Computed example of a mutant assay.
Amino acid sequence: MAEMAAEYHNNVQYADKPDLYAKIMATSLVLDQYEAHLNERQHNLLDNPLDTTDLTVAPKLSKTGSSPGIDGLPYEFYKGLVTEHIIKTADQEESVDILEILEELFRDIEAHGIAPGTEFNAGWM
């Protein structure tokens, strides 16, 4: 049943997916109607690169109890991941700092964008 539900929702998610031009036009139409804008300070803050502070504060401010994403992992998993960000390897000789990896990942995305076809930023609706 779970597989059938997942297949159904996946098909709905990607059914009638607009082409790039239609997506740009729809986005432009919505933004033309929107009257709120960032002030200069807010705009300048968005120009700053992400750092580990951003990566630890954002999950804490996000709500819990929402549905899992496409990867099937609930948001609480990610909150725990950044809270307990040092992970030991199987042999316990080395540790991996998840925050360093995430910071590098998001800086790469900021610099180069998301690779086409990866669906990195895809989500369920």
Rank of each mutant, 00 (worst) to 15 (best):
A2Q: 11
E3R: 05
M4V: 01
M4C: 07
Y8A: 03
N11Y: 15
V12H: 13
V12W: 08
Q13A: 09
Q13N: 11
P18G: 06
Y21R: 02
A22V: 03
K23D: 15
I24S: 10
I24T: 04
I24F: 05
A26G: 07
L29G: 11
Q33L: 09
E35C: 13
E35G: 13
H37G: 09
H37V: 01
L38S: 02
E40T: 03
E40Q: 08
L45K: 05
L46G: 04
P49G: 02
P49S: 07
T52R: 06
T52V: 03
V57H: 10
P59R: 08
L61P: 00
K63C: 13
K63M: 14
T64E: 10
G65M: 05
S66K: 14
S66N: 10
S67M: 12
G69C: 07
I70N: 04
G72L: 00
P74D: 04
P74A: 07
P74H: 12
Y75L: 09
E76G: 04
E76L: 05
K79Y: 05
K79M: 04
G80M: 03
T83M: 15
E84R: 11
I87D: 07
A90V: 06
Q92E: 12
E93L: 13
S95G: 11
V96E: 02
V96P: 00
E100Q: 10
E100W: 15
E103K: 05
L105R: 11
F106Y: 12
D108L: 09
I109T: 02
E110S: 10
A111Q: 12
A111N: 11
I114G: 03
P116T: 03
T118G: 04
E119S: 12
F120G: 05
F120R: 08
G123L: 03
G123W: 11
G123N: 09
W124I: 00
M125E: 13
M125T: 05
